[in-house]
Design a protein around this nucleic acid. Structure first.
Lengths: 271, 271
DNA sequence: CGTGAATGGTTCATATAGTGAACCACTGAT
DNA sequence: ATCAGTGGTTCACTATATGAACCATTCACG
């Protein structure tokens, strides 16, 4: 392993929870030698990737990362990087894929990729997703701010016969989403539409939105093989979008996914 | 020089204008060997600092920089880093210092640091700065979006006898600001207040706001030594805030400052 | 449809730069 | 006064970086 890689790996020990790190502490965290780590930090300081807090003498991330982030955002805007993942998801499943993002207290459609099977026909012709009745919405309730639940409970509109309209049932559904890592909306918003969704994150475990696959033909929803394929591709899409948005998939969610799905090469290769 | 530093320097060749760079092109830009540069890029790719555009096979900044930027922003918020520079400016000049930021089409007071000389008395008790009558406003007109000039010309309110109220005079003043790198407001907004300001930038040459020193005692405005000291400290503050906000001071402005001020150790040490 | 000039990428002998145990200097708590 | 922490440095040792020369593709052009 090159010394550069070792040096850059040091940066991964900084986080909102641990914004400043002293030399000795960093050596302990990284299981590294003190002299070497010190020289690594000097290289990072020289290039502006870290700077020192004059008071505590500890190291923290430097301003250079802000510049690089602005260039990255300009180079690969959110929409562009998300679209690539959405197209891949669409191709892999043959179904319509949506990406919704949370703005204030509402889930808006951010981008979508229609299944060629539907001949370009819109099967989800809405601008925003109700929290209690859609797969995306359940993701928001399960992984987003707790305050969203209050909003959802105040508007339990019954869209179809299957729509969940009681607080008890909704809370139980949301808990299942947290436990399994997937949310399902079986004709709860539109008749004949079955949705499966997973959340995406834009920073250290902060919910940003949800990727959904909407299946128009409800007959296919019971085929376990197709469902599993869809779930695996959703996980891939969520990881990809989260990564491209500078976010981190929470460990708890990765564990939930691992439990929900049988071991597979695709899932294991995420390291 | 360590190989890590050489590797990290490669990242500085990416910019909004040059978001993707091929191996050979990067070698030319950095005057580096191809084999070495290739290995450097591999280290950067391994750690997520660069990634490759699948289509063009060229390199671009990777998503890791977004994560680091979020942690940096959390660690050192804009206000915190700006305040430190403002306090230093205030201490060095003994005068009241303001930092204003441009939001939409208005310059708002972002933070201020009162001179101890004034005994905590507010000498600039406003929430926003008129573009045509304040030192901050002239900076915005000189270095901000050209569309600001239209807004300024539509509201040439005469605050004092010295306020510039004609388009010709304003345009000429703004040109002087561009040429010298400093803007002056000699009792144009408030009687007995003399302001000197410099701009700050939050990304690649994009105007973000202005740092102003406001002198209450107009008698001191003619002392060239004090003015020069103020200017030097303004330059230091602008560089510091711009750096901490992930911005870059345009080369043209650095040149203007160099011409306006006699050579000094403080200014030379910015490399 | 060769040809030349780009491109990205690899090899390997050379020697430069990285490594880490042991060390020093300082601070603050007991 | 001592000890357990810091951050930082030294220097013999060797692992790692280096770059001229190399290969493999692609692409524009006559």
């Amino acid at each position: 392993m090159s010394s550069t890689v070792k040096t850059l790996e040091l940066l991964s020990y900084f986080s909102p929870a641990r914004p400043e790190i002293g030399l000795s502490q960093l050596c302990r965290l990284a299981h590294r030698d003190k002299a070497t780590t010190h020289r690594h930090l000097q290289a990072l300081e020289e290039t502006g990737f870290v700077e020192r807090n004059a008071a505590s003498r500890r190291y923290r991330l430097g301003p250079v990362v802000l510049q690089l982030a602005q260039i990255r955002e300009h180079t690969v805007p959110r929409k562009t990087s998300a679209r690539a993942a959405l197209i891949q998801l669409c191709d892999a499943t043959g179904e319509t894929a949506h990406l919704s993002v949370l703005s204030r207290k509402t889930l808006y459609v951010f981008d979508s990729c229609k299944s060629p099977d539907h001949g370009g026909r819109e099967i989800m012709d809405v601008q925003s997703f109700p929290l209690h009745a859609t797969a995306s919405g359940l993701c928001a309730l399960a992984f987003g701010s707790p305050s969203l639940m209050k909003i959802a409970l105040d508007a339990l509109t019954p869209f179809t016969a299957q729509t969940v309209t009681t607080a008890e049932a909704l809370l139980q559904n949301v808990q299942t989403v947290r436990d399994t890592g997937f949310s399902y909306a079986d004709r709860t918003f539109k008749d004949d539409i079955y949705g499966i969704a997973v959340p995406v994150f834009d920073k250290m475990g902060a919910f940003a939105g949800a990727v959904t696959v909407s299946v128009a033909c409800a007959a296919r929803r019971d085929d376990p093989e197709i469902t599993e394929c869809t779930q695996q591709n959703l996980v891939i899409a969520s990881r990809e979008i989260t990564r491209n948005w500078g976010g981190v998939v929470p460990d708890a969610l990765e564990e939930a996914w691992a439990k929900s799905l049988p071991p597979s090469q695709i899932l294991e290769s995420s390291a």
